[in-house]
Computed example of a mutant assay.
Amino acid sequence: MKRSTRSRTALPAAAVLTLALSACSAANEASTEPAASGSASEGGTATAVSGTLDGAGASSQQAAMQAWQAGFTGANPDATVNYDPAGSGAGREQFLAGAVDLAGSDAYLDDEELAAAQERCSGGTALDLPVYVSPIAVLYNLEGVDSLQLSPATIAGIFDQRITSWDDPAVAADNPGVTLPARPITPVNRADDSGTTENFTEYLAAAAPEAWPHEPDGEWPVAGGEAAQGTSGVVSAVGAGDGTIGYADASQAGDLGVATVRVGEEFVGPTPEAAAAVLDTASPVEGRPDGDIALEVDRATTESGVYPIVLASYHIACSTYEDAETADLVKAFLAYVVSEEGQQAAADNAGSAPISDDLRSQVESSIGMIAAAG
């Protein structure tokens, strides 16, 4: 995805989500224990915190961030969290420049960015923490077809515009016993550079490499077809046609058909449980600093009950902050974000998939590393 530089002073007021969060700084520079995860009334913190936390990044997290801020605010009315949904690249750049304390990103930091983080993080390092998982659904609108199964190669052929009719033998082979109309297929893709497109094309390249000749990219790589702006645009375009198919956040599917996808010997739908399970089968990225949880999702998995077309998004924080107030505030906020209540709040508001208990334990251990310099 394209990257742009945004400074703290450039944060547009209309784009910044600001909520008051709660009281009393808890300056404990030496603590390596994660802040306690509690109820929403406790805000996920052992003690109340105060101060201002500035964040920026992935727009995919915007609805979840609203829920996390709201859940945190009851216990922490003397703190403020700002989040500018300027995009993953802008969030990473602002974080590395020291303009924000926390970044939201649909991609973990690369090696060059990690090196830059050493200076930004007061001699510490940056921590990539997976906190948000959203299944990407293959949506369709096809009169008379209420259930649709698709293999990775068939999905790739459709979106590469080589499978052009719904009664194509490849589609029929995935759907034995289903009467498919001899109707043209109209694939709908995102017109804008998006994390959803990048994750969808990553899936196609990994799960159907012989059928998808394009590199993963945030910009749609196939010319022609129908393009729409944003998630809402794709959903609207699919819903307005007959014979249309697209990809979008599963929570936005509405009344559209949702295809199940072949994984191994079964077809799996984009349920929260199946989407969250893909992170438990992911591999840690090699050569990362202690506490960093960058993950390589296995898009070609054959594990039962796993849905591999997901957007996995991170919060990126420092292991070391210049002052205790910032360290405590970031640590407390992240502890709420990954708590059971925080994850459920995001699921209710954004349709995301709560992370598993095993992954939560790993992230909490990394949060426990956050401290002030000195």
Score class of each variant (00 low, 15 high):
residue 238 V to I: 13
residue 208 A to R: 03
residue 342 G to A: 05
residue 141 N to I: 04
residue 128 D to E: 08
residue 226 E to R: 11
residue 317 A to H: 02
residue 274 A to I: 06
residue 261 V to L: 13
residue 360 R to G: 09
residue 40 A to M: 13
residue 105 S to H: 07
residue 90 A to I: 07
residue 142 L to I: 08
residue 147 S to D: 15
residue 132 Y to H: 10
residue 285 V to F: 02
residue 212 W to V: 01
residue 61 Q to K: 05
residue 159 F to L: 11
residue 123 G to S: 10
residue 180 L to Q: 08
residue 271 T to N: 05
residue 146 D to Y: 12
residue 88 S to A: 08
residue 351 G to Q: 02
residue 245 I to Y: 00
residue 58 A to Y: 01
residue 30 A to D: 14
residue 188 V to P: 06
residue 17 L to A: 09
residue 10 A to D: 15
residue 370 I to W: 06
residue 23 A to G: 15
residue 108 Y to N: 08
residue 283 S to C: 07
residue 262 R to Y: 08
residue 35 A to Y: 03
residue 212 W to S: 03
residue 142 L to E: 13
residue 195 G to D: 00
residue 166 W to Q: 05
residue 233 G to L: 08
residue 45 T to M: 14
residue 330 V to R: 04
residue 164 T to R: 12
residue 349 N to T: 15
residue 274 A to N: 12
residue 363 V to I: 13
residue 344 Q to T: 11
residue 177 G to R: 05
residue 361 S to G: 15
residue 195 G to S: 15
residue 106 D to Y: 03
residue 134 S to K: 12
residue 299 R to F: 13
residue 239 G to V: 00
residue 217 D to M: 00
residue 166 W to V: 03
residue 79 A to E: 09
residue 142 L to M: 10
residue 187 P to D: 07
residue 339 S to Y: 13
residue 365 S to I: 13
residue 88 S to L: 08
residue 121 C to Q: 04
residue 351 G to N: 06
residue 363 V to Y: 01
residue 155 I to D: 01
residue 66 Q to H: 06
residue 28 N to D: 15
residue 295 L to A: 11
residue 279 L to G: 05
residue 123 G to I: 06
residue 139 L to G: 00
residue 163 I to W: 06
residue 232 S to D: 14
residue 346 A to K: 01
residue 199 N to R: 11
residue 223 A to T: 14
residue 29 E to R: 15
residue 152 P to C: 07
residue 138 V to G: 05
residue 133 V to W: 01
residue 78 D to K: 14
residue 317 A to E: 06
residue 199 N to G: 00
residue 43 G to V: 02
residue 44 G to A: 07
residue 246 G to N: 09
residue 319 S to T: 02
residue 2 K to Y: 12
residue 174 D to T: 09
residue 247 Y to P: 02
residue 190 R to I: 03
residue 363 V to L: 08
residue 170 A to K: 03
residue 19 L to E: 10
residue 197 T to M: 07
residue 33 E to A: 14
residue 342 G to W: 05
residue 22 S to R: 13
residue 365 S to A: 15
residue 335 A to C: 02
residue 171 V to D: 02
residue 73 T to V: 06
residue 99 A to W: 01
residue 2 K to W: 15
residue 148 L to R: 09
residue 1 M to H: 12
residue 230 G to T: 10
residue 38 G to T: 11
residue 152 P to F: 09
residue 23 A to R: 11
